[in-house]
Design a protein around this nucleic acid. Structure first.
Lengths: 151, 151
DNA sequence: TATTGTTATACTCTATAACTATA
DNA sequence: TATAGTTATAGAGTATAACAATA
């Protein structure tokens, strides 16, 4: 027998955040299965729900590769949750907008997610959830800080 | 011009957590490049640093698939940061332990990570970092809550 | 010549199942 | 028959680069 002693190991805060972030992502994915959406499809619909935008604008909002967005929009358009039309003013652009069906799916998914979030944060009071949101919003996510210049 | 109006969109707390968790994971990955480690290699070394364990025990600690652990240990053993030996008491088992070189890499990586974490949480006071840790530890990560039983 | 969107492709990560050697 | 570890393979997710259409 070798693993008898279970010495405590302090987990770094970044590891903890990454681990529970992945857990939240998995929760979102599972909760949205019944809607036929991935978290990214859902986020895309949420952005479209604020009004029509070009794909380029969506790329910036969602911070995804253009080719990734193409696949997402193909799915949404196939299911008639969103549609693309050419911008008459600049025929290179596609203007994307949500359909009534898409808006309905979005609202239903929002309800499902509210329930799932309730489960996830069931041990946090509303005030603590606000606090968590505030703390998360204040972490430094600038991507160019870790340029690995040490050798 | 279509994307003129930038209406605010409230992001759910689970989405926020997932997004910043992914950011933390990327930060960890980049910070560890100079050590030649992935976050998972690092976590594995951290567990090994508390004493020799079987691969099965490591699988439980790290919550990864056995086949994933095999690849990680192959890397660590190739770089002589860890080693496997048969358990004489049960020759099916491999006892894994960290090498002095592995312990040295771990300590150096810990320093690098401390610096990177400092950057990541630079806008949070030590007390707020403790608070964030506490709040994260209290979110509900039981995986069997989202059985999608609604239709 | 630059920009928008698309396609094809490669790469990483992970999961699954079949296999071995031991018990 | 069950368990520990390994291997091979397939799938999802993402990134890269070349491309067509338009400006």
């Amino acid at each position: 027998m070798v693993a008898g002693e279970a010495e405590e190991m302090t987990e770094g805060l970044a590891f903890l955040l990454a681990r529970h972030g992945a857990g939240a992502q998995m929760m979102l994915r599972r909760a949205l299965v019944s809607s036929g959406l991935t978290p990214r499809h859902m986020m895309t619909l949420k952005h479209l729900d604020t009004g029509p935008v070009s794909q380029q604008a969506l790329v910036d909002m969602l911070e995804v590769d253009p080719s990734v967005l193409v696949a997402v929009l193909n799915d949404l358009e196939r299911d008639e949750l969103a549609l693309r039309r050419r911008d008459p003013a600049d025929r290179r652009r596609h203007i994307v907008e949500i359909t009534p069906a898409g808006a309905a799916v979005l609202r239903r998914s929002d309800e499902i997610l509210a329930e799932a979030e309730g489960e996830l944060f069931t041990h946090l009071s509303p005030a603590e959830q606000l606090l968590l949101r505030d703390l998360l919003n204040r972490i430094n996510v600038s991507p160019d800080q870790f340029t690995c210049t040490e050798d």
